[in-house]
Design a protein around this nucleic acid. Sequence first.
RNA 1: UGCGGGGUGGAGCAGUCCGGAAGCUCGUCGGGCUCAUAACCCGAAGGUCAGAGGUUCGAAUCCUCUCCCCGCUACCA
Length: 658
Amino acid sequence: MVKKFYVTTPIYYVNSEPHIGSSYTTIVADIIARYKRMMGFDVFFLTGTDEHGQKVMQAAKESGVTPKEHVDRLSAKFRDLWEKLEITNDMFIRTTDDFHERTVQAFIKKMMDNGDIYKGKYEGWYCVPDETFWTDEDIISENGKKLCPQCKREVKWVEEENYFFRLSKYNDKLLKYYEEHPEFMEPDFRRNEMLQIIRSGLKDLSISRTTFDWGIPMPDDPKHVVYVWVDALINYLSALGYAENDQKFHNYWPADLHLIGKEINRFHSIIWPAMLMSAGLELPTKVFAHGWLTVNGEKISKSLGNAISPIELMDVYGRDPVRYYLLRDINFGRDGDFSEDNLISRFNADLVNDLSNLVHRTLSMCEKYFDGVIPVFSGKDDSPDKDLYSIIQSNVKKYKDNMDHYQFTQALESIWEIIRYANKYIDLTEPWKLDKQDNGRERLSKVIYNLIDSIRIVSVLISPVMPDTSEQILKKIGYGQDHLAEENFELHRLSSNVKTDKGNPVFMRIDTAQWEKVIKIKSPDIKQNSFAPSIKKDETVNQEKKDNIISLIEIEDFKKVDLRVALVKSAENIIKSEKLLKLSLDMGELGIRQVVAGIAKFYTPQEITGKKIVVLSNLKPTKLMGIESCGMLLAAKINDKLSVLIADRDLEPGAKIS
RNA sequence: UGCGGGGUGGAGCAGUCCGGAAGCUCGUCGGGCUCAUAACCCGAAGGUCAGAGGUUCGAAUCCUCUCCCCGCUACCA
């Protein structure tokens, strides 16, 4: 029986264009899929797009198209990207696919049959313009009115009927499952986070909405659409034909690996398994949450202009080098930084100097000494040969162990151990001298054979990460893609008497002196100071500069600001707050106001009481520590010193400052 | 403020779970080789493993406390 392997990426929310972050997850999944295929697994690799929900509706509205047009357009972008990146997914699912919609309904019906779904009432404050619910604690109350904390417009109390999933019922079962299957959720520190959440008690989950209709209707109650996350998670089943194609479904379920980003861990590691338990299905073997990428040390954001397009990057550096870099330099599971300098450095050092050069110099020698025909394996082993063999064997083993545990950085390191030793092996055996010796011919044959054999194994091992490069190198020594199989990790499987094709080196060095980088950061460029002791210092300087940049404004801008003199009538500490004081202010014609100020570390209530301070009176009110604050007092701060501003001459409270 | 992550030679990181001669890559310096692409091979310099206590024959690793950086969060209004 053939072993199967079912791997998924998240389905991407079609809210914005794909960037390097979404590509990262998919590339990793692709590498795993290719590796498992090489290891003889029957692989099913799924990716797709998540297309329902309120935000999609809004995004469509903003671009002036229907939701369907919007999702068609963006979904196609993802699909095209994966094609360009030669991602080997077996299927691309869309949550607007009709079979998916049917499956979601069937699945929910199953949960209903098991008594896990009930109709309940959702009560809360609702901000209509924002289409958002707020809890009692969130909202701001002012003059008897309840305001939305986001937009400060009035909220209204709504009571909405929703369907709820009895998530709480699975609390203990989940806990037990986590305890019995420590491998279910990785990395371990993420697992601990999930355990904390489960231990603190799960609440039932509202799984339907009636405020908009861009979604899958609830079975038998089309006024409700299914909550987008519930809809989305079920894609992992519908892709396999759950409830429609039993054979395919049973062939691949349960999933062997759900690959996700850390931000969606809770859905995959708590809600999803509970849903599966409810429907009586087996749980996935593993959920693996990877970290986030920054770009050149900065968060990926549109405003910084560093949301780099994966296509652009790969056009410049090539698909394989980018894949290699991502996997080699970023420790899978942790957050990592995508740095173009490091990419270039890896490119030159690992790919050009070590790998490409090894292939090129070896094939040059094969051409020179054997007319490009792979010589026969003969004669007895010398000590460098024995070392070469043992290094290959031990590193092939390490490679497999690491790949099986998704430790890609380490897996690549073990391949490079082989490459480095092969380069050293050339120095130790000195083929150019053997060529000149009368009796060196047999030894020379063996040396060249061993080198090409090493290259063959290396090419096979790198294939999941660098498929194009692997193919190119294998072709040079007479092999096709059918050579990608575990049995070919073994030594001495190289065929002799095959004509090699040296061709051009697989990678050419990047000359950093005249190289134009792809990523251009728009923030002010601080010249790299070679005497600077560390980058941290540069960043500080950078920050200070940013803070000191002051743009000029019109007098009209200033007139928007209403500054007043206010008398502090009383002040008190806020319980459990280190920074805040609650002040009661006499503001003359504006009456008595309550302002919360973050000065508790610098002023005692007694000290500030009676002072005539300056207050920004027309600031939108807010709540701090649940206490209302209608205005802001002015204070100057430098380093650890802070002073509240006070008028030079005595003035009536309420006096306007202009 | 809470939670999480991190602080290891000039840079980037591994090692920390399960204590036992401080390791890898890049960079720098010196040497070797000429098959190869300013490459490859060898050697060297460079670290009080953030700091302070403690446990131990022995601590980067375990315990306690402190400091600093990053992310989210929060009481920056």
